[in-house]
Simulated scan of single mutants.
Amino acid sequence: MSRILYPLLFGLIGAGILVSLGVWQIQRLAWKEEVLARIEARISGAPIELPTEPDPEEHRYAPVALTGEVGADELYVLTSRKRVGAGHLVISPFTTEDGRTILLDRGFVRTDQRDEIRPTGPASIRGHINWPDDRTSSTPDNDVGGNIWFARDVAAMAEALKTEPLMVILAQSDTDLGTTPLAVDTANIPNDHLNYAITWFSLAAIWLVMTGFFITRVLKREA
C-alpha cells in the first residue's frame, strides 16, 4: 500500500492545483464579461461633450460627436489587419469649432497607400475617446524623426503634432477622409479565459488518468 500512497497523493494534489487554476479562470471569465458589458454600454451611449479635463478611467471609450477641421499633418503607426495585411494607422490633428486641437485616429491605410494625399479640412465626425494600450515589453521605441510609430503613445504624439494629449478614434465622418475607420469595439479585446479554463480542466483529467495508469501498473507488478 505504501508503494501507491505517494503517487496517489502526488496525483490528487497535482489535479487539485490544476482544477483550482481552471476555477480561477472561470472567475476571471465572469469578471471579463462584466468588464466587456460595461464597455459595450459606454460605447453605445449618447455622445458627451469633449471633456476639459479628460480622465482615462472616467472617459475611456466615451462617444463624442465633433465638428471641426482635420489637419494635414500625419503620423503613421505600423499595424496589420486580418485578410488585408500590413499598413498604418493615420493620426492627424483635429481642431474643433471652439478651437481645441486634439489627436484624431483616422483609421487604416495599406502600406502602399501611406504616401497618398488624403482629404483634410472641415468635417463632422463621431468617434470614441481612448488611450490605446498598444505598447508591450517587446514593442520597439518609436522613430519620431522618421515618422515610424510602433504604438499610439498619446502624450508623445500630442507633442509631435502640438495638440492636447487627447485622442479620438474615428467611427464615422460626413466626408471621406481617405482611410478605413477602425471604430472602438470589444471585438479586439481578448477574452480567452474560457479556453484557459478548459485547458486546465483537461490537464487535470489527464493528470488523474496518468496517475491511475501508474498506480495500476504498480499493483499489477505486486500481484
Rank of each mutant, 00 (worst) to 15 (best):
M1H: 12
R3E: 10
L5I: 15
L5V: 15
P7D: 07
L9V: 09
G11L: 03
L12G: 10
I17E: 02
L18T: 06
V19W: 05
L21H: 02
I26S: 08
Q27L: 13
R28D: 10
W31H: 14
K32G: 08
A37G: 05
A37T: 07
A41R: 12
A41S: 14
I43W: 00
S44A: 09
G45W: 00
G45S: 15
I48P: 05
I48H: 09
E53Q: 15
P54N: 05
P54K: 05
P56E: 07
E57F: 12
E57W: 00
E57Q: 12
H59G: 07
A62G: 06
P63K: 03
P63Y: 01
E69N: 06
V70I: 10
V70M: 04
A72R: 06
E74C: 11
T79E: 00
T79A: 04
K82T: 07
V84G: 08
V84R: 14
A86C: 00
G87I: 04
H88V: 14
L89H: 09
L89N: 01
V90R: 01
F94Y: 05
D98S: 14
G99P: 04
R100W: 08
I102N: 12
L103I: 05
L104D: 07
L104C: 10
F108W: 11
V109C: 06
V109N: 06
R110S: 13
T111W: 02
D115P: 03
I117G: 01
R118H: 07
P119G: 06
P122K: 08
R126A: 13
G127R: 00
G127H: 00
I129V: 06
W131P: 11
D133I: 12
D134T: 03
T136W: 05
S137G: 07
S138E: 13
T139L: 14
D141L: 15
D141I: 15
N142Q: 03
N142K: 02
G146Y: 12
I148K: 10
F150P: 00
A151L: 04
D153I: 02
A158R: 03
A160V: 13
A160H: 11
P165G: 09
M167F: 13
V168N: 09
L170H: 04
D174R: 08
D176A: 14
L177Y: 05
L177K: 01
T179F: 02
P181M: 04
P181S: 07
L182A: 11
A183V: 13
T186S: 07
N188K: 14
P190S: 06
H193G: 02
N195L: 11
N195F: 10
Y196Q: 02
A197D: 06
F201G: 05
F201V: 04
L208Q: 02
T211C: 13
F213D: 11
F214D: 06
R217Y: 01
R221I: 07
R221M: 13
E222M: 12
E222K: 14
